[in-house]
Design a protein around this nucleic acid. Sequence first.
DNA 1: TTAATAGTGTCTATCAGACATTATATC
DNA 2: GATATAATGTCTGATAGACACTATTAA
Lengths: 259, 259
Amino acid sequence: MSLFGVPFVAAGSVGTIPAANISEREHLQPQLAISTVIFALRPKEDGKLGLWLPLVKRVREPFLNLWALPGGPLRADESLEGAARRNLQETTGIEPAYLEQLYAFGGLQRAQHKDVGAHRVVSIVYWALVRDSDFPEDFEARHNVEWHPAEPADGCPEELAFDHREIVDYALWRLRNKVEYGQAGYHFLGELFTLAQLREVHEAVLNKTLDKANFRRDMLASNTLEETDLFQSGGRHRPPKLFKYTGPRGLGSPSRSTT
Amino acid sequence: MSLFGVPFVAAGSVGTIPAANISEREHLQPQLAISTVIFALRPKEDGKLGLWLPLVKRVREPFLNLWALPGGPLRADESLEGAARRNLQETTGIEPAYLEQLYAFGGLQRAQHKDVGAHRVVSIVYWALVRDSDFPEDFEARHNVEWHPAEPADGCPEELAFDHREIVDYALWRLRNKVEYGQAGYHFLGELFTLAQLREVHEAVLNKTLDKANFRRDMLASNTLEETDLFQSGGRHRPPKLFKYTGPRGLGSPSRSTT
DNA sequence: TTAATAGTGTCTATCAGACATTATATC
DNA sequence: GATATAATGTCTGATAGACACTATTAA
């Protein structure tokens, strides 16, 4: 129940029900938890970049030993996004540059399991896009936290705890939409990047190859990139120019203070 | 606190905190409420169609006498969408044909008011698109429920209770996006409609005039409409053909069972 | 010089906005 | 026939996919 001295649980099952309340569980308000789908780009088996996510192994019933999204209860003194950030920090050490609300899941069937009674939990799910610099030094050493491909086709376990498979699929759909409309890809990159790097990100997320020349033309026409006078050297070829992203950042969500 | 025999509250303030828990309020999980932004098309002052929403007058502090979104607490035995539907039925009598989750609002500041202490509530907000047939016979006779233009520019009260003004603005933004991409307009119409009627809906939502011929061309090319062999007679002009919507309906949300 | 990738130019099919024209109903 | 709106046709500029071509670096 405790990892690195900090209590955590996977989304869909909060840790403790106050003893005084167990007998009246049916009449209580549902428990409220926050969890996060974290997307990162890493090389797949075939060497190409693909989408991966860190998952947490369940250490208690229900769904013991299955993989789950990192998550935990919302505290009284923190915002929804604040809870997502704190929980990510505690369970995975990640401090994402990009974090946005995905959806609130609260169906009656979602936490049911064959041999454990239903346990009503409403999860407000966030999604994050992270790059290597968002990870702590000791990430790979953490127990019960492991990388998994985002799609079963690439070797992700078919079965995740609770309804987390469906949540990840929905997050993938949202991610692809955002990238297609040019509002998300750069979050996987550092401040400076080449157009080839940005294209590789888009190709990995959309899972298809894009025309080099057309991609360049469209990105430059979008007015969201700014040319720098820096070049990336080191390759055995003409050094590419480095660009910055200058477009809008948080578009598509309500303001910070109310969420 | 009770309207038509059924207890209800406006989103952002649930009715009762169990007595045993008041002293430990700070340590409790935040209260969970559901509320709904209901959009309907009605003639504006200038005669043109515009967006309106039914609001509920606050009958208690905080925000006494201000207008608020209909809403109430989530019960233990109902889904999020189920709670939204029940609450709409109880407060306004409306049974919307279209209902979708909008966003979860849970910032710490959102319920604060000058002379009342903060009262932490997380609201999961739904939005509905309704037409005349979704309304009960007695709608206009209801106390404390009134129509308001969705935009302050059209005469909506500037100040709504809690953070509901911001919520409505976000719902408007989402609605315009959905209509622009052709996935929502038909929810304001009955099963059969003319292209002119569909165009009027789009014009009202987007608040701009659209070219008749281009609109027709684009809608027919979208493969989401089916021509019938029926015509609408009665006008003093050539009778227009009636169409049905046959495109996808619930696109863009996770499946029903988990929400 | 060669390999490798950066970066440019251009052809074409498709699409969106603007607007002219024809069709068919009621009065 | 007058009027009003339905329905069709067409011109034009912008955009997206395909792909050929030139540029510049390191080895």
